[in-house]
């Protein structure tokens, strides 16, 4: 009965068609950019694009885990703003202090979310909405509503501006590492499988004796930590803690996850496809910038948002069709 050895490409594509869609869209957009714009493929554009998007990828990774359990975390943008201020304050002590400081601050907010959701049984949407407001207020309080400049004398700015191994800024290396770790965690560990099981059916997971609460706590702590990391990148890459940043980041992160084929109801998801989704969203802006640089058409920042929204809509529409077809094929 078992023919695991035989690898059926068509079957593989059919089962993973949601992931495949986003990778194809990403590659198509890259090809489009390469053919149309001269410097699109330059090392500089590549590196600065990834560096800028590192924080969005970090947030999307945490969000992906939350959404796979069937939850949501709306607080990530505000938490990132908060931790960017924390990181800026800690910057004179160097990366070795600022990084754990910012990440721990983010995890702290994640702990509040986890407590509200698991112990107080507040729905994730409401609990994290409250944390979002609290974190935003907190960021303004601790910064006095000012951007807080980082200490340029310490090694702090190397994180977002310096070169690791002479190639990429450290932020990219950290995010790549995080992607690898979380990808393996999802595929290879009990916690990853528990996360998917909860999203698939929380009742069934409970009755199987899975540590449901522990896994749920984990995803919100992780999401908070990822937001903390994003705040760190923000402060380091732009040289300042920015209490007013982060507005709408949670929605971008959710969009990245959804574009990556993860079901909003949970139970199914892919870490690499989420990264691809985040890259795709960022790349639309990148392409539009190049288009403006061409000089033939000029899109204002507002039009760019409209175009990005339209693009996002098209991809999600395609994605939902693909997923519906996939479910149907498998169901029959």
């Amino acid at each position: 009965m078992l023919d695991e050895m035989a690898f059926d490409l068509r079957k593989y594509l059919r089962r993973n068609s949601a992931s495949v869609t986003v990778w194809v869209a990403l590659l198509a957009l890259i090809l489009f950019g390469l053919m149309r714009y001269d410097n699109f493929g330059s090392a500089y554009n590549f590196s600065s694009f990834l560096n800028y998007n590192a924080m969005f990828i970090a947030i999307a990774l945490g969000m992906c885990f939350v959404i796979m359990t069937g939850g949501i975390d709306l607080s990530v943008g505000s938490v990132a703003a908060f931790t960017s201020v924390v990181a800026a304050y800690l910057s004179p002590y160097g990366i070795q202090v600022a990084l754990p400081g910012a990440v721990l601050a983010g995890i702290g907010f994640g702990a509040i979310n986890a407590f509200c959701i698991i112990v107080l049984r507040i729905p994730p949407f409401i609990a994290t909405l409250a944390t979002m407001l609290a974190a935003k207020g907190g960021a303004l309080v601790i910064s006095g509503a000012q951007t807080i400049s980082v200490d340029w004398g310490s090694n702090f700015t190397k994180l977002g501006m310096g070169q690791a191994l002479g190639l990429f800024p450290w932020a990219i290396v950290i995010v790549a590492g995080l992607t690898l770790v979380l990808g393996l965690m999802l595929e290879k560990t009990t916690i990853g499988r528990t996360v998917l099981a909860i999203g698939g059916s929380e009742d069934a997971s409970n009755l199987m004796g899975l540590k449901v609460n522990r896994a749920k706590a984990f995803v919100y702590l992780l999401s908070g930590g990822c937001a903390g990391l994003a705040g760190l990148f923000l402060a380091s890459g732009f040289g300042a803690g920015q209490p007013l940043e982060g507005i709408g980041w949670e929605l971008s992160a959710i969009a990245s996850v959804v574009v990556g084929g993860t079901l909003l109801t949970g139970g199914m998801g892919s870490i690499p496809a989420t990264v691809a989704g985040a890259l795709l969203l960022g790349l639309v802006f990148n392409v539009l910038n190049f288009e403006n640089g061409q000089g033939t058409i000029s899109f204002s920042a507002y039009w760019q948002m409209v175009i990005r929204g339209g693009f996002l809509f098209a991809v999600i529409l395609l994605q939902s069709r693909v997923i519906a077809k996939q479910q149907k094929v498998i169901g029959s």
């Binding site: 560990t189 499988r193 059916s201 009742d203 899975l210």
Partner: peptide, 28 residues
């Protein structure tokens, strides 16, 4: 509603209740 996790594979469904015993330091 309370048994299968539909999107998971036969293998994953079968070993969900066994996971704690199948894993060493969380690794399956």
């Amino acid at each position: 509603a309370e048994g299968i996790i539909p999107d998971m594979s036969v293998r994953e469904n079968m070993t969900l209740a066994l996971l704690p015993k199948l894993a060493k330091r969380g690794q399956i």
